[in-house]
Design a protein around this nucleic acid. Structure first.
Length: 580
RNA sequence: GGCCUCGUAGCUCAGAGGAUAGAGCAACCGCCUCCUAAGCGGUGGGUCACAGGUUCGAAUCCUGUCGAGGCCGCCA
């Protein structure tokens, strides 16, 4: 139940009635109508711009139109008062019982409150993380992982069917580098002294892989030419890195549905197949690219290459799919990969990429557009950098530099819930600074605890009452008289709770899980406010032994807060704590 | 040079084309005999980078300028 949608519907109906009466011509376009909570509380509890949207079409001044619509709405028993303001806003105040009934609904629906079927079961392919299988995940990967997973939960909550997919880059030269590095660790495990070049992965996470190689192959690979061991070592090293990555993801409660291996594309001839499809559409040609301007390439020479005419699908320059030696570029398997996604018949593709892939978006859009004749919905969410801030020090993470912060270290330090929450506090396209000192603070400076604390407080009163033997199941609370919750702070809280379905819908539509975080913080604030008010106004204290009926209704409100908070945290992939 | 993402309070950031642009932090002043003070209330703080345009109305949409970060053929 979304009260904003309900009232919006009532207003649409009112406009329809005015059309029927001939007050305004038929065919009003209400697509720009907004029904929202005004920022300024003196503008009522709900406001709409409908009169201004329709004014031109209606050929009447907005204020006159607003008055007519207000008249139509006069019989609606949900509306306590309605007024015309400013250039033609309609400001509504609803009867308190409307908000309180929503609270009752929360108790009846529990975790299902706010759930919707907006997505109508549409199948979404959600690709995220997709980090190269050459080492453990760092914080930057973690941000993409948390974002992707929470977005998946959000979409599922709103009626989509989500496939979480990880694209494993196991075919490029970086996995050969991985294999050579693992081989060095293997020699080390066999008791040899080795030296690591600058072009190898020197992280100690490969030590175990080296030992595993030693256990598997014994001394057989020592001194053998690379051509004899590379492929075996590579396979084992990749598998070992994927284990590492999977366990990193597990730390955050993330489980992928599909690991799609790049190598499977070349092996099954699917790259040729995909390029063929493009070729038949006249999008593949041999040609020469201009050198990038404003940037010095020392060894630049003009070369003829096989190119994809991405410019005919919105890209700003055509893209090479083959190197001059005739082998595929990185782009070619990606083309095949997205061809495969489209053939799997998803209604929508969403890719979660790191910011360094920004320059890659347009050509991928061109690919998807070319394969689907512009019909497939395709969204790329770029995840900006994560900086770890400690005092004035900002350490940028770079995988090769070795001074990156491992995801696992962060989770060990502050816990998975805190890591997840912090990662989701910013829009995905804004850089994120994490101050680990602040994030473990147990105060309102730390939004994780602020939200958790609200939930814990709400739970604590319930436990006390339960201990006293008073029944407090959600069902029982749903049947108590809520209409006695008439204090402004109580109604404010009920209103806040009522916004939840709308927030969920907005977050889902925009694919922005951070909106959930902001809502939960505001909900917690409203609850803390009411709670503290109980210190000065005894009637607002939730528990009052002399007033059982009042206690039950206030408890119902608190329980609704706990339910919505827990539901919201669940979308973020965070456990709500009951005691702190 | 081109492309991408941005530019909002001292700091970190929200902001479905709507009204006098909001939080939190930091600063200052208050609130525990009493449900978790891990909390609450109050005060101060703004040329929404800049300039045009679109319209009843722009932080939001369009164009340009400036600034930050990211990316730009045989790396993935």
């Amino acid at each position: 139940m979304n009260i904003y949608a309900d009232i919006r519907h009532a207003i649409s109906t009112a406009v329809g009635q005015l059309e029927e009466r001939g007050f305004i011509p038929a065919g009003s376009d209400l697509s720009h109508m907004i029904v929202e909570r005004p920022r300024d509380p003196t503008h009522g509890e709900m406001s709409t711009n409908v009169a201004m949207v329709v004014a031109k079409h209606a050929g009447r001044p907005p204020r006159k139109l607003a008055e007519a619509i207000a008249e139509q709405l006069a019989d609606d028993d949900r509306i306590a008062s309605i007024s015309v303001a400013g250039p033609g806003f309609l400001n509504l105040v609803l009867r308190p019982s409307v908000w309180l009934n929503i609270v009752r609904n929360v108790l009846l629906q529990g975790a299902a409150f706010g759930r919707s079927s907006k997505g109508r079961g549409q199948r979404v392919n959600l690709e995220f993380v997709s980090a190269n299988p050459t080492g453990p995940l760092h914080l930057g990967h973690g941000r993409g992982a948390v974002f992707g997973d929470s977005l998946g939960r959000l979409l599922e909550f709103t009626g989509y069917s989500v496939t979480r997919e990880y694209y494993v880059n196991d075919a490029g030269s970086q996995v050969d580098t991985l294999a050579r590095s693992a081989y060095l660790r293997y020699l080390e495990a066999a008791g040899q002294k080795v030296e690591f070049g600058t072009d190898s992965y020197r992280g100690d996470y490969l030590i175990k892989t080296g030992q595993l190689l030693h256990r598997t192959f014994g001394k057989r690979l020592i001194g053998a030419p690379e051509s004899e061991w590379l492929s075996d070592v590579r396979d084992l090293a990749i598998e070992s890195m994927l284990c590492l990555i999977r366990s990193d993801l597990e730390l955050l409660g993330i489980e992928m549905d599909t690991f799609f291996h790049e190598r499977s594309l070349a092996e099954s001839g699917r790259i040729d197949e995909a390029i063929d499809v493009l070729d038949k559409r006249g999008l593949i040609y041999r040609g020469q690219l201009l050198p990038p301007k404003g940037r010095q390439l020392e060894d630049w020479e003009p070369r003829r290459q096989t190119l994809f005419r991405s410019t005919s699908h919105g890209d700003d320059v055509d893209r090479p799919i083959k190197k001059s030696d005739g082998s595929w570029t990185y782009f070619a398997p990606d083309i095949a990969y997205h061809y495969d996604k489209i053939k799997r018949n998803f209604d929508e593709l969403i890719n979660v990429f790191g910011a360094d892939h920004g320059g890659y978006c347009q050509r991928l859009r061109a690919v998807v557009s070319a394969f689907s004749d512009g019909r497939a919905r395709f969204d790329i969410k770029l995840i900006q950098l994560v900086n770890v801030v400690r005092l004035d020090e900002r350490l940028k993470m770079s995988k090769r530099a070795g001074n990156f912060v491992k995801l696992q270290d962060a989770v060990d330090a502050v816990g998975a819930d805190v890591v997840r929450f912090v990662m989701l506090m910013r829009r995905n396209d804004a850089p994120l600074d994490i101050n680990f000192d602040e994030v473990v603070e147990k105060s309102k400076d730390n939004p994780v605890f602020y939200v958790q604390y609200a939930h814990a407080r709400a739970c604590s009163v319930q436990k006390r009452v339960q201990a006293a033997g008073i029944p407090t199941s959600d069902e029982q609370l749903a049947s108590v008289d809520l209409d006695r919750l008439l204090h402004a702070d109580q109604i404010t809280l009920a209103r806040r709770i009522s916004e939840w379905p709308r927030i969920v819908e907005l977050a889902s539509t925009h694919r922005e899980p951070h909106r959930i975080v902001f809502f939960l913080t505001e909900l917690a604030a409203s609850f803390h406010t009411l709670w503290a008010r109980g210190n000065t106004i005894p009637e607002l204290r939730i528990l009052n032994a002399d007033d059982e009926a009042g206690t039950a209704s206030r408890l119902a409100l608190a329980r609704a807060v706990a339910l919505v908070t827990a539901t919201g945290l669940d979308i973020l992939g965070i456990k709500a704590v009951e005691e702190m």
